[in-house]
């Protein structure tokens, strides 16, 4: 299956690098469209700022969004791509959870750290597309807090410290709660164990761990969207 890719990155050298990564990751890449800023990306996707991107005749299958853009933040584009049938991956120099977590909440399917080596990036990209996104310990911790208390304050990339849970938020709904196994996986991840080690510790297969992580991502996505809807309706935006 041929893969159509959109890369949104303002640094031309980094853009070229990412192109190489993409071509290395997939055997048949039909075309790579490069965009240097948000406006260009929006023109390519055919939607206006603040609107929703609709899948046209020939949609992209993979979109790489840089978080640090000159004319806004990649998060805006991510929200606009909410209904777009493509794998959305954020690329960023930041590796801390304060920048990555909001991206995940906005619907990113995974993240790539720009400082990683070529081989690492290729491997990560393939894993994300396969449905095995990475999860750093910091993000795992954030997820634990989020699902435990419904971290409304963290939505939208706030600068709140992830350590102290806010007691005032209501409990999340059922379909947004983690199962005990998923909580366990997250806890191990937050302690820095690798997937192989977690599988060994929990006595399950490597693939099962990945499945858990995938479902966690989905739940985050759903809960984030639900939160967004609730928030928006509360503020009278919808």
């Amino acid at each position: 299956m041929s893969v159509k890719v959109l890369i949104l990155e303002d640094n031309p050298v980094a853009r070229g690098f990412l192109c190489r990564v993409v071509r290395e990751s997939f055997s048949d890449v039909s075309s790579i469209v490069e965009a240097g800023d948000l406006d260009a990306a929006r023109r390519t996707l055919g939607h206006a700022a603040g609107g929703r991107a609709a899948a046209g005749a020939d949609p992209f299958q993979l979109i790489l969004v840089d978080l640090e853009l000159p004319d806004g933040s990649g998060l805006e584009l991510l929200t606009e791509l909410a209904n777009y049938p493509a794998t959305r991956i954020v690329t960023t120099l930041y590796s801390d959870d304060e920048h990555l977590f909001p991206a995940l909440q906005c619907g990113a399917d995974g993240y790539l750290l720009k400082e990683d080596r070529f081989e690492v990036l290729v491997e990560e990209l393939q894993k994300i597309v396969r449905g095995q996104p990475p999860l750093s310990p910091a993000i795992a911790r954030r997820l634990l807090t989020h699902f435990r208390t419904g971290d409304m304050a963290g939505f939208g990339g706030g600068a709140a410290s992830p350590v102290a849970p806010t007691p005032s938020a209501p409990a999340p709904l059922d379909h947004e709660r983690l199962t005990p196994r998923e909580s366990e996986v997250l806890t191990y991840l937050s302690k820095g164990f690798t997937i192989k080690e977690i599988a060994a510790l929990m006595g399950i297969k490597w693939f099962t761990v990945n499945d858990h992580i995938k479902s966690i991502y989905k739940k985050l996505n759903v809960s984030s969207r639900a939160e967004a809807a609730v928030l928006a309706s509360k503020q009278g935006l919808v």
């Binding site: 750093s136 310990p137 910091a138 911790r141 937050s190 302690k191 820095g192 164990f193 690798t194």
Partner: peptide
């Protein structure tokens, strides 16, 4: 310390 250690380990 434990959080930082988790990140270091990873």
């Amino acid at each position: 310390l434990t959080e930082a250690a988790g990140e270091w380990k990873r």
